[in-house]
C-alpha cells in the first residue's frame, strides 16, 4: 500500500520538468501572442520599427542582430572548439586530458556578467582603437559569445570523438594513413552527428545569452550594416526594457521572448533528432 503511494508520488514528481516546460510555454505565449495578433504577424516579424509606446512593434532589427551575433560566434567559436576537441581527444595524453577537459569546462562556469565586463574593459577599447567605430559592436559580442560557447561545443565534441569505435581508427592507420589523416578522413566524419549536435547546442546558448551581450554589443536599435556597428539582440531588448515597460510595451517584450523561445525549441528539437539518429 505504502509502496503504491510512493510510486504515485514519484510519477507525479517525474513530470515536474515537462510541467515546468509547459508552464513556461503557456505563460510566454499567453502574454506574448495577443500583441503579435494586434500588430499583425507581418508587421511584427518583418518591420524594423520598434516604438512600443507609440504602437510600433517591429522586431526585425533584433532578430537580424540576434542571428548575426550567433552566426559570428559560431564562425569564430566552432573552429577553435573543434581544434580543442581534436587535440584533447586524440593528441592529448590521458593524464593531461583528465586535467585539461575540466579546465575547459570551467570556462563555462565563469559568469556571463564577468565575460561581458572583461569584454567592455579589454576587448571593446582594442576594437575601437584598431578597427574604428564605437567598439561596442556586433564584432565584440560575437567574440565574447564565441568564447562562451566554446566549452559546450568542445565538451560534447570530445564525447562524440571518443565514442567512435577504435576499430575505425586502427583500420585507417593500418592502411598507412597518418594519425591526422585518420582523424580528418575517418574519425571526424564518423563523429559528425555528435559534432553537429554540439554546434547546434552552442548556437542555442549563443542566441539566448543576455548579460554579456548587453554589456558589449552597444544596443543601438537598427539593422547592422557592418561588423563594427552596435547591435541590440532580442535578449538585450527584453532585459533592457523590462524594468520600465508597462501595458502593450511589456507584452511586446514577451512576444519577443516568444520568438526567441521558438528559435531555441527548434534548435533543441533538431539536436534531439540528430542524437536519436546516432
Amino acid at each position: 500500500m505504502k509502496e503504491k503511494i510512493i510510486e504515485k508520488i514519484l510519477t507525479l514528481l517525474a513530470f515536474s520538468a515537462i510541467g515546468v516546460l509547459l508552464l513556461i510555454t503557456v505563460f510566454i505565449f499567453k502574454e506574448g501572442l495577443p500583441v503579435i495578433l494586434k500588430a499583425g504577424i507581418k508587421d511584427f516579424l518583418f518591420s524594423a520599427k520598434w516604438a512600443p509606446t507609440k504602437g510600433h512593434f517591429g522586431i526585425l532589427a533584433m532578430i537580424i542582430s540576434s542571428l548575426a551575433v550567433t552566426f559570428g560566434s559560431i564562425v569564430m567559436g566552432v573552429p577553435l572548439a573543434l581544434a580543442c576537441a581534436v587535440t584533447l581527444a586524440e593528441f592529448c595524453p590521458p593524464r593531461l586530458l583528465v586535467f585539461l577537459k575540466p579546465t575547459i569546462e570551467l570556462l563555462a562556469g565563469i559568469p556571463s556578467v564577468v565575460f561581458g565586463f572583461l569584454g567592455v574593459i579589454l576587448l571593446v577599447p582594442i576594437i575601437r582603437e584598431y578597427l574604428g567605430g564605437p567598439g561596442l559592436s556586433l564584432l565584440a559580442a560575437s567574440i565574447i559569445l564565441a568564447i562562451m560557447i566554446l566549452p559546450t561545443i568542445t565538451s560534447i565534441s570530445i564525447d562524440a570523438i571518443q565514442a567512435v569505435p577504435l576499430l575505425y581508427k586502427e583500420g585507417a592507420l593500418a592502411m598507412g594513413a597518418t594519425h591526422w589523416q585518420a582523424i580528418w578522413l575517418v574519425i571526424l566524419p564518423a563523429a559528425r552527428s555528435g559534432v553537429v549536435t554540439a554546434i547546434i547546442l552552442g548556437m542555442a546558448r549563443a542566441i539566448g545569452e543576455t548579460m554579456a551581450v548587453i554589456m558589449v554589443a552597444g544596443n543601438a536599435l537598427k539593422i547592422p550594416s557592418s561588423l563594427l556597428d552596435p547591435v541590440r539582440t532580442l535578449t538585450s531588448t527584453i532585459a533592457l526594457e523590462m524594468g520600465y515597460s508597462a501595458g502593450d510595451h511589456r507584452t511586446a517584450l514577451f512576444a519577443a521572448g516568444m520568438i526567441l523561445f521558438i528559435f531555441i525549441m527548434a534548435l533543441t528539437i533538431l539536436a534531439n533528432l540528430l542524437m536519436r539518429k546516432k
Binding site: 517525474a14 513530470f15 520538468a17 515537462i18 510541467g19 515546468v20 516546460l21 508552464l23 513556461i24 505563460f27 510566454i28 502574454e31 547546442l201 542555442a204 546558448r205 542566441i207 539566448g208 545569452e209 543576455t210 535578449t235 527584453i238 532585459a239 523590462m242 517584450l253 514577451f254 521572448g257 526567441l260 523561445f261 531555441i264 525549441m265 534548435l267 533543441t268 528539437i269 539536436a271 534531439n272
Partner: peptide, 23 residues
C-alpha cells in the same frame, strides 16, 4: 520526460526570467 528535461536545460535564462516574472 527526457525531452522535457533536455528542453528545459536549453531554455535561456532570460526566458526563465520572463516566465518567473509573469507567474
Amino acid at each position: 520526460i527526457r525531452f522535457g528535461t533536455e528542453s528545459l536545460a536549453g531554455i535561456p535564462s532570460i526566458i526563465l526570467g520572463l516566465f518567473g516574472f509573469a507567474i
